[in-house]
Write a protein that binds this DNA or RNA. Sequence first.
RNA 1: GGGAGAAUUCCCGAGUGGCCAAAGGGGGCAGACUGUAAAUCUGUUGUCUGACGACUUCGGUGGUUCAAAUCCACCUUCUCCCA
Length: 409
Amino acid sequence: MSVNVFDTLKERGFIAQTTHEEKIRELLGNEKVTFYIGFDPTADSLHVGHLLQLIVMSHMQRAGHKPIALIGGGTAMVGDPSGRTDMRKMLTREEIEYNGSRFRDQMKGLVDFGEGKAIMVNNGDWLLDLNYVSFLREIGVHFSVNRMLAAECFKSRLERGLSFIEFNYMLMQGYDFLKLYQDYGCKIQLGGDDQWSNILAGVDLIRRVEGAEAYGMTFQLLTTSEGKKMGKTQAGAVWLDPSKTSPYDFYQYWRNVDDADVIKCLKLLTFLPMSEIEKMAQWKDAQLNEAKKILAYEVTRIVHGEPEAQKARDAAEALFGQGGSKENIPSVKITRDMLGDGMNVLDLLAATGLVPSKSEGRRLIQQGGLSINDIRVESVDKIITASDFADNEIMVRKGKKSFHRVILE
RNA sequence: GGGAGAAUUCCCGAGUGGCCAAAGGGGGCAGACUGUAAAUCUGUUGUCUGACGACUUCGGUGGUUCAAAUCCACCUUCUCCCA
């Protein structure tokens, strides 16, 4: 008898809330269950928060259950108010469709959508053409405004303002679940913990309309030990799209997580066996760096594939450890024409985009934060000439950890 | 529909005619310390400039004034009270 996936998820610390803990466990242990997770295409790439959901999906799939990945082409037209203090920016239908297509491509790398193994649907297919009055009569009747207002997800919004369009979001998501229950026999909806209210809406709706029991379960949001959302950097979200967050930066993000978060991340974002993770949990101080390397490599591998993960690791080793190949360190190019007889450092930084403005570059240099070929740049007047380039290349370091090769062409 | 109030730099938030590129906090960046961690301390945080300084910014558009984030008009969005 193989391990019940419920126990796996529980052991790894995924589970936040369940509608019926025992029943869900039993169900997952006894039959092949169809379940769904929804993803609203509000940006042109998935991010780390989505990754966690997809990992769960993968765990479930490995255990023999059947995932439905729902792209929220319809719900994204409205915008989920859950967990937000302000209204989402309204997206056009074209943007949503484009974003949805990006989501689809990225998901294919993480979950097996082979014949009969998993399904991908778009709720735009049934939501966009709904008739308002019939929707109200069929679905709206089942929702109590009193109860909705009491729901946690509207709390902060009731203080700051909530528009009617967003208030409807819950009905739409509830309807999705009902629809998937009817069309695919989908019995469980999973999601981030911020989705709890929306999931309950669906569970209730199925009971009222179908007189049947459906289940819901939410997962821990990926937060740091301080309770902050993970997957955010000064530059914005950490994306799964390699053109938005390079595999190297992605790797570095995980390489640099706080000590306190490594083990949690290993459990949630990798498929390494618990026995191995438990071992790493015993590691202390500097030794934890090894765990971070493993985390970074594994997560990068899952998202970008083995070769990219190796390249990222290689680059990191070359910069921070010993060995490794410089090949894979991020680079920018500059032409000989631009360089001419010599170029001011600031101009070079600005021209290559290594610094967003010259003021910032000047500040960086004045504070001793810039090195070229490992030598600190002392003056903003420094001129870089072709002779500084060895093998047509110089290594520019900003601060402690940001490295770029500048290649002369 | 009627009335009251709000919109400030990445965020929160002070500023109510010149001393304002705009207090304070958060965040970011950099330095020291370290383990590519955290905590701490220091510096820095609109753009251009070697510097003096110049230029753009306080929801939008016009206006008053020698001078406007600050005053006036209209517009937009949001909040609150009444219906």
